[in-house]
Design a protein around this nucleic acid. Structure first.
Lengths: 233, 233
DNA sequence: GTTTACCCTGGATCTATATCATTGCGAGAG
DNA sequence: CTCTCGCAATGATATAGATCCAGGGTAAAC
């Protein structure tokens, strides 16, 4: 029942020296308040395809992604599924918990991931004393909204070839290298609203034409200029 | 330059007795603070296709829709456009202004609309004294996010026929009546990521089969049960 | 080592939808 | 009243992508 049952976790994270602190939720917090974090925040590790939470679970915490990739999946009544968002390190998810609502997606690790589990009680307590936290939360909410709009315009519009090209461009840095492995075709399809076969064919075609190539076991590189041309068509 | 130049507006709205007050942003406000609203909030009226703001405009206010319908439009580099959200009465838009960011969409009236223009300075001032306002703002942000996710799963997935059916269902009340006129085919297409011709054909087909029919000049009614069947397919 | 299972790729249809083009209608201009 | 002009409806055609199927590679399971 509990989505967390199979997770590995440990308490006592060193939040004050967190490498993400500057980018993280509590960036504006006074040092003395960090003691509160110490007790409450848990470290979570997920293997590929492990679930963080599921649609309808009671929302008791928000999560910051520290490493890896997380997908948010939504389902239609008929059972078909769509990946509506991808979380990268420093992103925050499960915000609906702060409004007392159950989670609205399945959150699943795309690759091995590490996260911080932040109980909503803690957020509420700190928020009462730190108005800047609210500002920061709104900023996160807005980030998520912008990301959703991007998915609508970039990944749900145009031909399948354009969508795949746009997705690759977004995964890669501007120099054409990417630090993450290529998604499997099924996930790609669920992100782009196409079938796995079409995704597979297009990736294979791009590889043949030298637009992308494997670079090591957990990464790929691509030709941004050519991909951009394909994306614009 | 100013997107508001051609709008009709008047000041001195009666916010305290606003019909939307219960649903509105300031629902939790103490009565004595309403005097602040009186001076700052403006009433705006837009005709069909009139713009409220455009992408990149400096964000100086948020807007509450009081009547009518508003579309948020986003553009791809290649010029193709997509309607990413629809605002109904009591919805709030332009939230990015509160973060000091320029507007990220074109906001255009789909039908004649009336709105309240709420300067961000006012929101910030009231927010400092009313923590509940932040809560309410987060709630609005989350609403927008949920709406965006809905568009991804319902309006960007499945066949064109399914999408049109789902859109009609969402426009109509559960009893199959709708208070708003049918969109023109171009807007429909831009919402669903299909062409105007396909939208036209499907609407015509639905009319022929009795799934929808005009009911008066500014409204339509539909057969929810049948439409639901089509949407699920 | 062998088997099993899964994923990627590719071929062969088939169909939904884009695309291009035409007609008809209704509103507004002159 | 007539002439545009824009939009809905519809036809004809082309094609992208879904669908169904099969082969082959790789990794885990036995």
């Amino acid at each position: 029942m509990n989505a967390c049952s199979s997770e590995l976790w440990e308490s006592g994270t060193d939040c004050q020296n967190c490498s993400l602190r500057a980018a993280a939720l509590f960036a504006g917090l006074a040092d003395e308040q960090f003691s509160l974090l110490h007790d409450a925040i848990q470290d979570i590790q997920l293997g590929p395809d492990q679930e963080l939470y599921r649609v309808g679970d009671a929302g008791k915490a928000v999560y910051t992604l520290r490493s890896g990739l997380l997908k948010l999946v939504q389902y239609l009544p008929d059972g078909s599924r769509r990946i509506v968002r991808l979380l990268r390190p420093a992103d925050l998810t499960g915000l609906e918990a702060l409004l007392g609502q159950p989670y609205q997606h399945d959150a699943v690790a795309l690759q091995a991931a590490t996260l911080c589990r932040i109980p909503i009680d803690l957020v509420n307590k700190l928020g009462a004393q730190n108005p800047s936290l609210h500002q920061e939360l709104m900023r996160r909410w807005h980030q998520a909204l912008s990301a959703a709009d991007t998915w609508l315009t970039e990944f749900s519009t145009g031909t399948a070839r354009q969508r795949v090209a746009r997705l690759l461009l977004r995964m890669a840095d501007s120099d054409g290298t990417s630090s993450c492995a290529l998604f499997n075709r099924k996930d790609m399809a669920a992100m782009l609203g196409i079938t796995t076969e079409t995704a597979s064919r297009l990736i294979a075609e791009f590889k043949r034409n030298g637009l992308i190539r494997q670079s090591g076991p957990a990464g790929f590189s691509c030709d941004p200029k050519e991909l951009f041309r394909v994306a614009a068509d």
